[in-house]
């Protein structure tokens, strides 16, 4: 694994973008994060490209001429397991929920800074390499005197053990399966509760509050358990000391 994260590159990057000018402008920047750049101007071209070769990351613009919006995302998701990064002109919470539920991994709202786009691509590469399907990454969350061992199911602050309930562990593990990725409320229910259960949306908020009370130093100004307003929750794992 490369020690410097800014050197992280995707092997193949598929960019689905119909605006020539934007594609030409992005090309030199994207070539710094991918060995091989494949482009497509429509969803059907993208599907043909996916049939020929599976890229490591897909960047998908939502304003394509043949299929628009979340349907485009669903069509691409059906053909690949690789992370999908969405470029979108809209930014409402409802739109984001739809995209994430349709299988997107992350989204960037236009207009964006080049650095931000590249950082998102690198984060997706790092995430997909660190967590091949099913495994849990990371095994532990360590921040100051807080230590959470997700595999063992133990947590402590200093020498004081913290007691998490079964559901709190399940939520934490679901979020930890892909740190930095926002999970919609629905995705969290699906991971934690196998069947319909009470008022899940409100219960989830209550469980998250309990988790923050236990794990965060300042629950109202959290460091790990981050709310993506109107969309869902994500776990931000603080950089490990040995990495820093």
């Amino acid at each position: 694994m490369p020690s410097n994260s800014s050197a992280l590159r995707a092997t193949t990057l598929l960019v689905v973008e119909d605006d020539r000018a934007l594609l030409d402008a992005l090309r030199p920047a994207l070539e710094t994060v991918a060995d091989d750049l494949v482009t497509a101007g429509t969803v059907s071209e993208a599907l043909a490209a996916l049939a020929a070769q599976q890229p490591e990351i897909v960047i998908l613009d939502l304003g394509l001429p043949d299929i628009a919006g979340a349907d485009a995302c669903r069509a691409v998701r059906a053909e690949t397991g690789s992370p999908i990064l969405i470029l979108t002109a809209r930014s409402s919470g409802g739109e984001k929920v739809k995209l994430l539920d349709a299988g997107a991994d992350d989204y960037v709202t236009k207009p964006f800074a080049t650095d931000e786009l590249l950082a998102r691509v690198r984060a997706l590469v790092r995430r997909s390499r660190a967590a091949p399907a099913g495994t849990m990454a990371p095994a532990t969350i360590i921040d100051g005197d807080l230590e959470v061992d997700l595999r063992e199911g133990t947590a402590s602050r200093g020498s004081v053990p913290l007691k998490l309930t079964r559901i709190e562990w399940a939520i934490l593990r679901a979020l930890a399966s892909q740190p930095g990725r926002t999970f919609t409320h629905r995705q969290i229910f699906d991971a934690v509760w196998a069947r319909p259960y009470g008022n899940p949306s409100q219960y989830l908020r209550v469980y998250m509050t309990h988790l923050r009370q236990k794990l965060e130093r300042e629950p109202a100004n959290p460091r790990f358990l981050i709310t993506d307003p109107g969309v869902g929750y994500r776990l931000e794992v603080p950089p490990r000391r040995e990495d820093a």
């Binding site: 920047a29 002109a89 809209r90 650095d115």
Partner: peptide
């Protein structure tokens, strides 16, 4: 409004990207 916002945002993204580079 959605169309206008899309049509304005895409070229702005291009300009910002080129300026960054």
């Amino acid at each position: 409004l959605a169309a206008v916002s899309h049509d304005l945002r895409t070229p702005l993204t291009t300009i910002i990207t080129l300026a960054d580079q």
